[in-house]
Amino acid sequence: MDTIYYLVQNMLPVAIPLLLVALGGMFCERSGVINIALEGIMLFGAFFGCLFILLTQNAPINPQLLLFFAMFVAALTGVLYSLLLGFAAINMRADQTITGTALNMMIPAAILLFSKMKYNSDGITTNINLYIREIPLLSRIPVIGDLFFQKTYLTVYIGFLFLVISYIIFYKTKFGLRLRACGEHPHAADSVGINVYKMRYSGVIISGILGGIGGFFYAVGVMDVNVNGHTGVAGFGFLALAVMIFGQWKPIRIMFAALFFAFLRTLAYSVPLIPFLDALKINQDYYKMLPYVATLFVLIFTSKKSRAPKAEGIPYDKGLR
């Protein structure tokens, strides 16, 4: 039982970045823009979130409140960075995959450049403690308290809140319906008076918000509020894309996919602590490959009946209507 508690407690902070970033990718792709740049957006948000923490960590403020402010900083910078993708993909009708790749390449190098010149290190290292040992009262609930309210981060609860908000925006508002229309058949959407460019920008901006926050939450929950130009976010932006595809571009399914991938990754990094797996004596590096190999297999089995937005990746040209 302790092993299960341990796995769940460690899985949730890993699942949340995947969940948020995959939701961001979902908004972006359902509006018709492929977002390969999620990895870069994540790292950009993580960097500025951590920079904010670094500059304010000695102020006499509650650390959890600081996390909340840093989250806004990460969201804002994520939006700024995603606008570069939006400008290229929507206004300039550039190849969205290439643009995304360029944006991904820029950030690790820029972080290394900045950190080496400013701090003489490979990234930003903070010494704030955002870990929550237990939440009063709630952690006393028998099983649930052990699973969800002990040894965790605030990010977990904020993440699930964002899932609920995203679901409502996506399915229960006029805006969500219009956004989805632009990814399926933009010309039809345009013909009934929906501004496709505006909708696609909204999709990109939402992916910037969620991507930036997701990146910062990765830095909090996985890297202990540090960010580093060499490892970056370890391909989480790309894994989030796989999560999104596995979740068939739908919020609730994306949540289950994110939990699945996070479980695999947690397993990979905690083999020595699990007696059953440790007894198998399998090289730990095999487990490190596991999330990526699982992604390949998931893609193989889901892409035949893939429900990708029909118009994704195709720049919208009003003149073709």
């Binding site: 290229a88 300039m92 009708r93 550039a94 360029a102 190098a109 450049l113 080496k116 010149m117």
Partner: peptide, 25 residues
């Protein structure tokens, strides 16, 4: 002159970004 070699990676990324739509420009 005190500059880090990573600046080239940044420059290359910017070049790719612009070359994705330079033809349009």
């Amino acid at each position: 002159f005190g500059y880090k070699p990573e600046i080239i990676d940044v420059v290359i990324a910017v070049i790719i970004y612009f070359s994705a739509f330079a033809l349009v420009m």
